[in-house]
């Protein structure tokens, strides 16, 4: 069973359609990145999943159920929304203790200390957090979201407004959570680098519709066929290479652009292809395995949409 299951979900605010019939699933242990520009509908999706908004139609399920007033289900989810949701006059310890009480955490003292240690704030636990830096508060809010050992963590722009060092720190924490603790993560972001670094699956949302949705590897390498760019020494080399590769059963497509030969392989046969070219006297200068970055995919997806509209 999927941990998150969204099916034909639509949300309208009056005449405005914010989400238009979207569907997606997130499996246990996955880190799902929900990408899209501001106003795309990411936060609305999150709020629908969290039971803070009612869908106009369709379903948004967590653990197979709609999050309503059922306390048991809510104990299984952690949230780190746009704001830290911390009380500045209270100490780090008291902040976590408050949330631990709300979630009926057994042995609160030990749990709170353990989490403060996890986010490296144990030695400053008694200070009012008004004295903390933005990055420290963000770390504390991650600890806050984890205080009841949730099975899934919903995050909305967790690194927004942080300096690069703090962003790296937060990303490392998320990687550790998904890797070592097997926590499922649903991450709203428009930080492509962040999503590429930590997510296994992504959805790209624009104008309330999902424009792309798959595992990152599949999106970066569509069709599962490896691509090579082979730079050769001259035009004659390119022509010979093209002739040889077209005749080869290891190659499914060849395209020549000047002295660069772009090859789509039908299997993982890169070394054989290069040996074939070298054996036939083609002078190779450079071979590059072509992998699309998430940024390429994102811009292509949004570009296609703009072209369509």
């Amino acid at each position: 069973m999927s941990v998150v299951e969204i099916e034909n979900l639509t949300k309208q605010f009056g005449q405005l359609t914010v989400l238009d019939n979207i569907s997606l699933q997130v499996e246990k242990g996955e880190v799902f990145g929900f990408l899209g520009p501001n106003g795309a509908g990411k936060t609305t999706t999150l709020r629908l999943l969290l039971g803070l908004l009612e869908p106009t139609s369709g379903t948004a399920l967590v653990f197979g159920e709609r999050l309503g007033p059922k306390d048991g289900l809510r104990r299984g989810i952690g949230v780190l929304l746009e704001h830290d949701a911390l009380y500045k006059r209270m100490s780090a310890y008291d902040n976590l203790d408050y949330y631990a009480r709300l979630y009926d955490v057994a042995d609160r003292r030990q749990k709170v200390d353990q989490l403060l240690d996890f986010v490296d704030l144990l030695d400053r636990k008694d200070e009012p957090i008004a004295r903390y830096s933005t990055g420290m508060r963000r770390k504390l809010s991650i600890a806050r979201a984890l205080v009841h050992d949730p099975e899934i963590l919903f995050m909305d722009e967790p690194t927004a407004g942080l300096d690069p060092e703090a962003q790296t720190m937060i990303r490392d924490v998320i990687i550790e959570l998904s890797g070592n603790k097997m926590i499922t993560v649903f991450l709203n972001s428009h930080n492509l680098y962040e999503v590429q670094r930590i997510c296994t699956k992504v959805g790209i949302l624009r104008g309330g519709r999902i424009k792309a949705y798959d595992y990152i590897e599949n999106l970066r390498n569509p069709g599962g066929q490896p691509l090579l760019d082979i730079a050769v020494a001259g035009g004659d080399d390119a022509a010979v290479a093209q002739q040889l590769l077209r005749a080869s059963p290891l190659v499914s497509a060849v395209e020549v652009n000047g002295t660069t030969v772009s090859v789509t392989l039908s299997g993982s046969s890169g070394p054989e292809i290069i040996s074939l070219l070298v054996a036939n006297g083609v002078r190779i200068e450079e071979v590059t395995r072509v992998v699309r970055s998430l940024e390429d995919i994102y811009l292509e997806t949004l570009g296609e949409m703009e072209a369509t509209s």
Partner: peptide
Amino acid sequence: AEGIIETLLCAPLNL
């Protein structure tokens, strides 16, 4: 205004 209420609404706590 600080957005804290949204996080509280996600807690296992009756409104």
